[in-house]
């Protein structure tokens, strides 16, 4: 039932897949819920505030209440929007984000992880699909702010995808495989790749921030300029889906970062899933920390930054890695 990766598909293994998906979905929802909670709490503390503290003990159920509120809201579809596109856009945005999770190895035993030979590539390919949802949403909204936001988003995600991919290639060279499980295995035998790949790691951190549309690259939804960017017209659960997409990607990116540079679930003493959780949390917290500190980049300086700084850096890192790999 659990070995669908190596055996032909049967009804039983299909059931296994279904159960696996539901489990991962629930896990993801909980993770998203509490990353939002942690974001609000952590940034609150930095800003000398308390953060959410009303719903449940220590406000632990605050996000649940927020989501519940969004779900019971009226599903508003404005009159002048492109109805069909407006309705499917959040779905197009969300589905790939969730699918990308399928290659992230959460723990030592890959129960719910597809052991795909091209894992890293698969992730990048899927994350590029989300941008269509964002663009369609922005276009269909028939709102000028949404349009500008979605166009910015498209331009930005395209630009950052390339340095992101290039920074991953360095790791792939070290491990000799694109399979994320093999990459972890490679790190188990030697050191975590954050040490030999420190430049690649920095590029990955910056590019992934841009890819996730988080501060200082949160131009697509820059609320002080574009009100809310591409989801200006969305409300209720469609809006919730856009938010969910964003945070699922945060989780997925945290998993990818942990896998590529911090050795994934590998580590002494503690169980694998706990190591994974700790490493993912480090990345997520770092994102929130930067969010609490940084102003936004200027839109006309983001693209040159991606193309003229990050990409050469990533390529440089790649060349060095290749040379070292050949020499050593």
């Amino acid at each position: 039932m659990w070995n669908w990766a190596t055996h032909p598909v049967s009804w039983l293994s299909f059931l296994g897949m279904l159960i696996g998906t539901v489990v991962i979905l629930l896990l993801t929802l909980v993770v998203v819920m509490y990353s939002i909670y942690w974001q609000r709490k952590f940034i609150g503390w930095i800003q000398l505030r308390i953060g959410p503290n009303r719903v449940g003990p220590f406000g632990l159920l605050q996000t649940a209440a927020d989501v519940f509120k969004l779900l019971i809201k009226e599903d508003i579809i404005p009159n002048k929007v492109d109805r069909v596109l407006f309705m499917i856009a959040p779905i197009i945005a969300f589905v790939p984000s969730f699918m990308a999770l399928s290659v992230i190895p959460f723990s030592r035993t890959h129960v719910f992880t597809a052991n795909i030979a091209v894992g890293a590539l698969f992730y990048l390919a899927l994350s590029a699909i989300t941008i269509h949802g964002v663009m369609i949403g922005g276009w269909a909204s028939n709102n000028k702010y949404a349009l500008i936001g979605s166009m910015r988003s498209a331009a930005q995600m395209l630009s950052f995808e390339i340095p992101l991919g290039m920074s991953i290639v360095g790791v792939v060279l070290m491990a000799g495989s694109i399979n994320l499980n093999d990459i972890i295995a490679g790190q188990q035998h030697s050191v975590w790749y954050i040490i030999p790949q420190v430049l690649g790691c920095i590029v990955f951190l910056i590019a992934s921030t841009g890819e996730l549309n988080r501060t200082p690259f949160d131009l697509p939804e820059a609320e002080s300029e574009l009100v809310a960017g591409y989801h200006t017209e969305y409300s209720g659960f469609r809006f919730a889906f856009f938010m969910l997409t964003e945070y699922v990607y945060l989780f997925a990116m945290a998993g990818l970062f942990a896998t590529l540079f911090l050795g994934g679930w590998s580590g002494p003493w503690l169980p694998g899933w706990l190591w994974f959780a700790i490493k993912a949390l480090i990345y997520i917290t770092f994102q929130f920390w930067v969010q609490a500190t940084m102003p936004r980049m200027r839109v006309d300086k983001v693209m040159p930054f991606a193309w003229k700084v990050l990409l050469p850096l990533a390529l440089f890192n790649l060349v060095i890695t290749a040379v070292l790999k050949a020499v050593l």
């Binding site: 503390w45 930095i46 000398l48 505030r49 308390i50 609490a292 500190t293 940084m294």
Partner: peptide
């Protein structure tokens, strides 16, 4: 800047 924000964490709310 990152250091400044981190130093605020333990301060009294």
């Amino acid at each position: 800047g990152l250091g400044v924000t981190l130093r605020q964490l333990p301060k009294k709310k």
